Amino acid sequence: MGMIGGVIGSVFGALFGERRNVVAETVEVFRENAEAGAGRAAEHRARVLAQFAAEMARERRGGWDRFIDGLNRLPRPMMAFGTLGLIGAAMADPAWFSERMAGLALVPEPLWWLMGAIVSFYFGARMQAHGQGFERAVVAALAQAPAPPGPRPRAGPATTATPDPNAALEDWRRTQP
């Protein structure tokens, strides 16, 4: 009986006071420990959510800034709803609509080009400003984020080498007073 207990104990549990489970350790070679995997996944999700929260954090603004931001959001919906309104007006009163379109036909072409440039620059500048603001927020969040766990990259010859000097630039600098 003692021998069978020792064999079973060595395979499934405690042998000589050790708390090992040889079967579980062998299975973990071929299949991930579900509890440990769930813990790692939860930790990973928490880190990802913390990074997203840092990227999407907005600074608190005053009432005037919020009002101006609200005004800046109006042109696109107004243009979309205005176009739908024009379609509705054309169906409701075609004579009135044709008179207005005849008036638009009298607008000189350079004025249309100017209006197109103003609208394009307005929306282009807004898009660029929002994109750059988002990039600045992401860079700031990444600068404050802790380093990810794991092995750090080793410094190699590529990271310690100085860049090659620009010979043409050096010649130009020497000729300048």
Rank of each mutant, 00 (worst) to 15 (best):
R61L: 09
P75S: 05
L106T: 07
R19G: 11
A168V: 07
F121A: 14
A102V: 02
G9W: 00
A102R: 01
G150K: 04
W96D: 12
P151S: 08
E55L: 05
V22S: 03
T83G: 14
H44Q: 12
A53T: 14
M127G: 10
G39N: 06
R47A: 15
P157E: 15
L104H: 07
M56W: 07
L84M: 11
F30K: 00
G82F: 00
A34V: 14
A89H: 03
V29Y: 08
P151H: 10
P110S: 01
E59F: 01
R61Q: 11
H130G: 07
V119E: 14
V7D: 00
A14M: 06
V23P: 00
P94Y: 05
R73W: 08
R173F: 05
V23M: 10
F97G: 03
P177S: 07
V29L: 10
P149G: 04
T26P: 00
P77M: 03
G62N: 12
D69G: 13
A161V: 13
S10Y: 08
M79Q: 08
A92Q: 13
E109W: 05
E135L: 13
G63E: 05
G17L: 00
G6D: 12
V11R: 01
A54I: 03
P110R: 04
A147N: 10
G13C: 02
A117P: 01
A36L: 09
F134G: 03
R60I: 07
Y122V: 04
E99C: 01
D164C: 03
R60P: 08
R152K: 14
R66W: 04
L86F: 06
R58S: 14
G6L: 06
H44K: 13
V22W: 05
R73A: 15
A143L: 02
G133W: 00
I87M: 05
A41Y: 04
R19S: 09
F81Y: 12
A143F: 09
Q132L: 13
R19T: 14
G70A: 12
I87T: 02
V107F: 09
Q128W: 11
E43R: 15
E43S: 11
E99L: 06
P177G: 13
V119P: 01
R47F: 05
P77Y: 04
A105P: 02
R31P: 00
Q144A: 15
T26S: 13
H130L: 10
M56K: 07
R136D: 14
